[in-house]
Amino acid sequence: MNAIEARDLSKTFRVKQKEKGMAGSLKAVFRPKLQEIRAVDQISFSVEEGEMLAFIGPNGAGKSTTIKMLTGILFPDEGQVEVLGIDPVKNRRKLAYEIGTVFGQKEQLWTHLTPYDNFRFFGAIYDIPNSDIETRIRELADTFDLGSFLNTPVRNLSLGQRIRCEITASLIHKPRVLFLDEPTIGLDPVVKESIRELIMRMNTELHTTVFLTSHDVGDIEKLCRRIIIVNGGRIVLDDSMEHLKSHYLHRKHKENAQPSEVTLESIITEIYKAQSLQHPEAPEPGMEV
């Protein structure tokens, strides 16, 4: 069975517009203008159980909107989703027991309390009895080396330790699919490395399916064997990492470039640029949908 199955997913947003200056303000009061943006446009893909998938694209490409539709936060305008055979629109609650989510920019932890207290809370949310939760916390703390700061309030932790706890908290109920939205944002290289290790270990030891979005090429390269690139709401590439690289190496070879110049970073940049030429009226940059 596939862990994630998406067919022809689409979602359109409307954005309010305002013209410049005092006149524009006055006009917006009486007749607000709306502009339609197709955030996700007929996306189809599937993810196998146990797979680690990189789902990337420039800002405003539709990554977060897709994640929200996969987790039942947003309902698609068109198309179908199934995660672990469950329809997020109809069975959001049932699905919630089976999946975990980490949004790198949003905190879900209580910052004034310790990781231990936090884990207890998430345990209660997922109906784990108090007797089991102690063992589960110990297990996770051992696996991910949290022992030294398990009883330090989260706000006194370093950003890296905090993200480790965020990820651990989302694993408390043994989810079968984990959605990671930019987990390494704002971290230094050493901490990034340790977060990647954690994700890696989680995937191999717990067999968790991982759906990862990131702007960090390192994350993608070190963790994922498959990559989906979206731009302007559409999938522009769905390929294995290996194939993608060899394909580009091959092409560059024809253009007489040095193999060392062909990095994943350069490939991705090239794809992004090529796409934005095709879609000159794509949503303004900086607008994370």
Binding site: T12, F13, K16, K68, L74, F75, D77, M287, E288, V289
Partner: peptide, 14 residues
């Protein structure tokens, strides 16, 4: 809440 999930207003979703 159902409406929230199927909403199309950008302000609500950024």
């Amino acid at each position: 809440l159902r409406r929230y999930s199927s909403s199309n207003l950008m302000e609500a979703r950024i």
